[in-house]
Amino acid sequence: MWDQEIRQMASSHAIMASGVFMATVVPAVLVPGFSVYGTHLLWLYSVAGAVAVVNITLFWLLGVSSPTKKHTITYKVSRLVRSCLYLLLSCLFFHTVVILYGAPLLETALETFSLAVLLTSLTTLRCVCVLGPNVQAWIRVFSRHGAMSVWDTSLQMVVGCSVVGAWLGAFPIPLDWDRPWQVWPVSCSLGAVIGYLTGLVAAPAWIHWHRKHLTYKIK
């Protein structure tokens, strides 16, 4: 039914995944002494940046976001400003949640905030790209039976997988193995990125598998 869109989605997800891959490999070549554990924050920012750039470019090119009714420059600027505001708020939100989960309040604030930035770039950024800065639409998509298009379903899956990945990533921390990836926030950010990649793979596959049963309400 949505063969065209599924193919589009699969290829764009492949590009996003390769973006994450490049963000890991390129600094390893360019920056001396780069490693995922050792210079973790650097890796984290490079992944976050790559994901952001790839997402914004791809969704802008694809034009998935609901077509804007107005084309005035002020409207566009206000949309941009609101998007940035939402992204910032989402960073703060994730930071708070991570602290509520037990991260130290002050000592590792930078690490915690970096994790929040990564999570934002993996989840909220995609929301902004797909749905625009529109909280009502976000609530609709994330309530039950709220997806209205293939992209909404993929958004649900990718966001869900990233968050669950980060959640699962916290489990190895109490183990007494003394490995470099047990240091805060390495396992969580690794979990989030792995979850994100899983979501990227799983979403088109799942939609392709269920394409006969998928029905979407028309707005």
Binding site: L100, G102, I173, P174
Partner: peptide, 9 residues
């Protein structure tokens, strides 16, 4: 830690 984590979730 497990319980705190689960409770938060």
């Amino acid at each position: 830690q497990v319980w705190y984590f689960l409770l938060n979730t």
